[in-house]
């Protein structure tokens, strides 16, 4: 059941921010509604205090994808379908397009937004690992002003971000990726459509002959929230990409995941899979 709620539709961003500031904790922006409405339906604790929904899905200021500063700005209400179809994102940030294409189902992608995916910050949010390896930055607005933050800092813990009740994510910036990076996104789910991810990995590597010049690694679903692995990345830089070393890196990835999550009932299954998949990804990217 959807509870008694008040529905507000601001005409522009400024009005939306005013509403959020006025209603505070009891208000929540709604765009695609693909997390909030099922959440209401199962009476999820996370959405119980909501009394007012502020519909931001059609605000002109946040529904566009634009090219600037060498990168791409994606508006806070841009849907996954918009992302999948966007030629520039497909060309320059293919892992994001790839992840977006595998989210939910056509019906979900037509409504669900990129910003909603990481603001909800479920451990299995598929867009997060690619965004993290692309060093995405978020723009957050409120009546108090605007701030910019790397996504990795913005995300705090499962279902928690630094977003305050009066704030809204207005844009995501994907900075230009230095030439020479190649990458791949991997997702394991139980069913083809609408699968909750069990494992996601995003890996970007820049090779200089046989040497790993730079590398970015992120995972989702197997870590409490989507996250990068800075120690692992540091360790790999400057190393020759030979099978033994890549295997070693994969073993360590498994160990770091275990450290972050603790032993779970599913670890016995997931860890070897993560390690094997990661190893194979590296082999393909580095060859």
């Amino acid at each position: 059941m959807i509870p008694e709620i008040e529905y507000l539709r601001p005409g522009n961003l400024q009005e939306a921010l005013q509403m959020l500031s006025e209603y505070g904790e009891t208000a929540r922006p709604i765009a695609g509604g693909t997390d909030i409405l099922p959440g209401f339906h199962i009476n999820s604790r996370r959405f119980r205090d909501i009394k007012t929904l502020v519909d931001i899905s059609n605000l002109p200021e946040i529904t566009a994808i634009r090219e600037a500063n060498g990168g791409v700005y994606i508006g806070g209400a841009v849907t996954f379908t918009d992302i999948v179809k966007h030629p520039l994102i497909r060309e320059k940030y293919p892992m994001l397009a790839d992840a977006a294409a595998q989210i939910g189902s056509v019906q979900i992608r037509n409504r669900a937004t990129l910003a909603g995916n990481f603001v909800n910050n479920a451990p299995c949010a598929d867009s997060v690992p690619p965004l993290l390896v692309y060093d995405a930055r978020v723009t957050v607005r409120s009546l108090r002003g605007e701030r910019h933050q790397p996504l990795g800092e913005f995300l705090l813990k499962p279902y928690r971000t630094q977003l305050q009740p009066d704030e809204m994510v207005t844009e995501v910036f994907l900075p230009p990726l230095p030439a020479g990076f190649r990458g791949e996104f991997y997702k394991l789910g139980r069913r083809r459509g609408v699968a909750i991810s069990r494992i996601t990995l995003a890996v970007l590597v820049k090779m200089d002959q046989r040497v790993i010049e730079d590398i970015r690694i992120a995972s989702g679903a197997v870590t409490p929230i989507g996250a990068r692995f800075p120690e692992l990345e540091a360790q790999a830089r400057g190393k020759t990409a030979e099978a033994d070393f890549l295997k070693e890196l994969a073993i360590q990835l498994g160990e770091q995941i275990l450290q972050r999550t603790g032993l779970r009932w599913s670890s016995a299954y997931k860890l070897p899979v993560v390690q094997q998949v990661f190893y194979q990804l590296l082999r393909r990217i580095c060859q």
Binding site: G33, T34, I108, R111
Partner: peptide, 8 residues
């Protein structure tokens, strides 16, 4: 195509 159960 959208889910009418997920659209207010």
């Amino acid at each position: 195509a959208v889910h009418s159960c997920l659209v207010l």
